[in-house]
Design a protein around this nucleic acid. Structure first.
Lengths: 104, 104
DNA sequence: ACGACACATAAGCATACACTTATGTGTCGC
DNA sequence: GCGACACATAAGTGTATGCTTATGTGTCGT
């Protein structure tokens, strides 16, 4: 199941940190590593999980591999979340506004 | 971390099915069980996980325990997702509309 | 061609997770 | 009170997960 992969990927705090870093723009695996106390293979494995989940996509650039957020993954979460819109509390109006902003 | 609990809870397919059932309205543990081939203790454990994550809340009603979606959990996912709004693809406009609908 | 570098993959290991069966707790009807 | 019912908790078990160290693959500069 696609959703399972996505939620499993995001269930790990380190992977969420990585993902959040990528929200700021494209980065290679080494750049993603600093700040986080994590070995190189561990990062590689985390990135593989994020990629398999469709949350991240990669692009070879010489001997570096640049990673970036994959909008498809974000969209999947969005459509999943939309099924529960009946339960969104009123105080979430701010978020709704943000979403409106984004499609100008 | 709050987000960790939420994503871990949703990473399990059975728990997502349970949550989706609750999206249709309040149900007790037994009612949630049918359709799903799962033992009673397993369901009880799943509900405990969903509750600990803040996705679901319970209400004793005689010897039944009614469960319902907790809007706080939904809101948490929403605010988390909002940080990635820059990556929402354009085809997500429909979702944005849905969100706008909901706060009339 | 060679060493250095960036990253991926393999193998092994400790812990976490989801399940099972067995039992405990609380509420109902009689 | 007592048995039946709805659910929770305990304890045990197989598997998945995230880490480690070791090694493989591909690219760069010289």
């Amino acid at each position: 199941m696609v959703d399972t992969d996505i939620f499993k990927a995001l269930a790990d705090p380190t992977r969420r940190k990585v993902f959040e870093k990528l929200a700021g723009g494209s980065l290679n695996a080494s750049a993603l590593r600093d700040g986080l106390e994590i070995s190189q293979p561990a990062m590689s494995q985390h990135l593989a999980v994020l990629r398999a989940a469709g949350l991240v996509r990669e692009q070879r650039q010489g001997r570096f591999v640049n990673y970036e957020v994959d909008p498809d993954g974000i969209a999947s979460i969005g459509t999943w979340l939309a099924r529960y819109r009946a339960y969104w509390p009123k105080r979430i109006e701010a978020l709704s506004d943000l979403l409106k902003d984004m499609d100008q």
